[in-house]
């Protein structure tokens, strides 16, 4: 039996070596010629093609660590000055602000970036740039709700929808950023009243993700649901017939905040404070901001391009023609903690 253990151990070690080999990582090159180390919380099946395109254009190899935004932030913090992180990419402006606030990002001035990305979708000091946009809007039951019933954010909290709203938990960063934006626009008191209205309107305690809310509208659990735009667009164009069926009854409305347009959030990125391959990081960021990359991402995940000059590819283009609020997305992050407290106080779990 001694022998058997030995055999198993050898197999294990061999497997481990194989696994290491299959990491297929060219050792990240501190000299900086050929690599860029990407820490990203954005992960789609089209990523591989996107990075391959960048490598094809520049010859720079992309090393990736995926994770959720805050774990990546914690990791970069722990890695300290030795961090190999070059570029940090995540969805949600709040998460980018948290990285900035932890001094993990460095200012970058790039004419390519400032030209491509509108001022309200990037950090004024250039520590991060929006790359793609999503709107946080309303999916509604077209058999029960008229678009006019829901053309402002106030109406989400109005008694008209008492017990008829589906919404996900307060833990969702997208909700936090939305409430953060409302605090920016309305101040905490009015926003507090709004969150209480939302809680009063909930058809059920918050559960599931945005897609679950949309499907709940179709199932008659509620009449309206708060969702990110791309989830709906994805369902409307899904391979799954059941998903497509949902969107024949459930429609998308773009409510307006103070008549200035819908609340938008971004996915974006910034160059890490200690980036060992700073130049490559900027190149990758510029690439991600390029019309080609914005279009590729948009085609892959149904977000809208950040740049107004880049037309959304189909099928997202059908929804792209909405008015977006011009508020700077940089305001969301600093308001998130306050937003969480307001939501908690209102009983929004």
């Amino acid at each position: 039996m001694h022998m058997r253990t030995n055999i198993i151990m050898s197999i294990g070690l061999a497997a481990l070596l194989v696994a290491c080999g299959q990491g297929e990582t060219p050792a990240p090159d501190k000299a900086g010629a050929g690599v860029v180390n990407l820490y990203t919380a954005r992960h789609y099946d089209t990523d591989a093609a996107l990075y391959a395109r960048f490598t094809e254009q520049t010859g720079v190899q992309v090393n990736v660590i995926e994770g959720n935004a805050d774990q990546l932030i914690a990791r970069i913090t722990s890695e300290g000055a030795a961090s190999p992180a070059d570029l940090f990419v995540t969805a949600d402006a709040g998460a980018l602000w948290r990285a900035q606030n932890a001094n993990l990002l460095q200012p970058v001035t790039s004419e390519v970036l400032t030209a491509a990305i509108p001022a309200n979708l990037r950090d004024p000091e250039g520590r991060w740039y929006g790359l793609n946009r999503r709107a946080r809007i309303i999916a509604y039951d077209s058999t029960k709700v008229q678009p006019a019933d829901i053309d402002t954010y106030e109406e989400i909290a109005s008694p008209r929808f008492r017990g008829k709203l589906c919404v996900r938990s307060a833990d969702s960063v997208y909700n936090l950023s939305l409430v953060g934006a409302l605090i920016e626009a309305w101040g905490p008191e009015r926003t507090g009243a709004w969150t209480r209205g939302v809680v009063a309107n909930m058809a059920r305690p918050p559960e599931g993700g945005d897609r679950d809310q949309i499907r709940a509208v179709n199932a008659g659990v509620c009449e309206i649901a708060l969702t990110n735009s791309y989830y709906y667009i994805r369902m409307a164009n899904s391979d799954d017939a059941a998903d497509r069926d949902v969107t024949t009854r459930v429609k998308l409305a773009f409510p307006s905040l103070d008549g200035q347009g819908a609340h938008v959030n971004i996915s974006g990125g910034g160059v890490a404070a200690n980036a060992p391959n700073r130049a490559n990081a900027i190149r990758l960021l510029e690439f991600l901001a390029s019309p080609e990359a914005q279009t590729m991402v948009s085609a892959g995940n149904n977000e809208f391009p950040a740049s107004p000059n880049v037309p959304a590819p189909p099928p997202t283009d059908a929804y792209a023609n909405f008015k977006a609020h011009p508020m700077s997305v940089a305001t969301y992050g600093p308001r998130q903690a306050e937003a969480q407290s307001l939501m908690s106080a209102a009983g929004w779990r």
């Binding site: 294990g12 497997a15 070596l17 194989v18 696994a19 290491c20 299959q22």
Partner: peptide, 16 residues
């Protein structure tokens, strides 16, 4: 498949 080989390798390596 790549992830499965990582899981397998890390699983055995970690276990041992």
């Amino acid at each position: 498949v790549r992830a499965a080989s990582h899981s397998l390798g890390l699983g055995l390596g970690g276990a041992i």
